Simulated scan of single mutants.
Amino acid sequence: MDELKAIDQALFLELNGYHNPFWDAVMVLISNKYVWFPFYGVLAGLLIYFNKRRGLLMVLCLGASVGLADFISSGILKPYFARLRPCHDQLINANVNFVDGCGGLYGFVSSHAANAFAVAIFVIFLLPKKQWVFKGLLLVWAMAISYSRVYLGVHYPGDITAGALIGVGTAWLSIYIYRLLSKKYVYWQQ
């Protein structure tokens, strides 16, 4: 375990070491959850518009996916593991470039990564196969949000990876529930 932590720390310091004022501003913007609220609203609106009642079920299941990902990452794992964020870790924080504050004390796992991947993977599973461009954009979006957390000095790459896996898992679970409910209740088919 110590070797994994050392690799995670070394990778973090490498990735976090590249900064300039332009990218600092971009990463702060990308990482700001409030910036994405209009996107979430448009996404929910499009799901409902194109899918009618099933769209409402999609939005409810998507919300459940994100809520579960956030609860697991912030409510359970961060307090359980109590792993300090890089910017709070006295052993390395002198070498950390943190641009926009440090956030809470603990960082394992990244809620930003969990939530972004919960949204991206859920929507990717709903989209038809021919929508590969939009699917690719969703993945790039989730990866950009995740990388921004390392760039800003508030998460190790391992925090991001674990968060992304949680997001993928909750998305799969929510897709399964969505498919079950949409088949079981004819109401959602209309």
Results as ranks from 00 to 15, higher is better:
38 P>V: 03
43 L>A: 10
45 G>Q: 00
45 G>C: 04
46 L>H: 08
46 L>D: 06
47 L>Q: 14
49 Y>Q: 14
51 N>H: 15
52 K>T: 02
53 R>E: 07
53 R>M: 09
54 R>G: 14
54 R>H: 09
58 M>E: 15
59 V>M: 11
61 C>Q: 02
62 L>V: 08
64 A>G: 14
64 A>V: 01
66 V>F: 01
69 A>M: 02
71 F>D: 10
71 F>Y: 10
74 S>D: 10
79 P>D: 10
80 Y>H: 14
84 L>W: 03
87 C>G: 04
90 Q>K: 13
90 Q>A: 10
91 L>I: 08
92 I>E: 11
94 A>Q: 15
96 V>W: 02
99 V>M: 15
101 G>S: 11
102 C>R: 11
102 C>Q: 08
102 C>V: 01
103 G>H: 07
105 L>N: 06
107 G>N: 11
107 G>M: 09
108 F>D: 04
108 F>I: 06
109 V>I: 13
110 S>R: 08
110 S>E: 01
111 S>C: 06
112 H>W: 03
117 F>D: 08
118 A>E: 09
119 V>H: 08
119 V>A: 03
119 V>L: 15
121 I>W: 12
122 F>I: 10
123 V>H: 02
124 I>E: 07
124 I>F: 02
124 I>N: 06
126 L>Y: 03
127 L>Q: 03
128 P>K: 07
129 K>E: 15
130 K>S: 13
130 K>V: 07
130 K>T: 15
132 W>T: 11
133 V>G: 00
133 V>A: 07
134 F>M: 12
137 L>N: 00
140 V>D: 07
140 V>E: 00
140 V>P: 03
140 V>A: 09
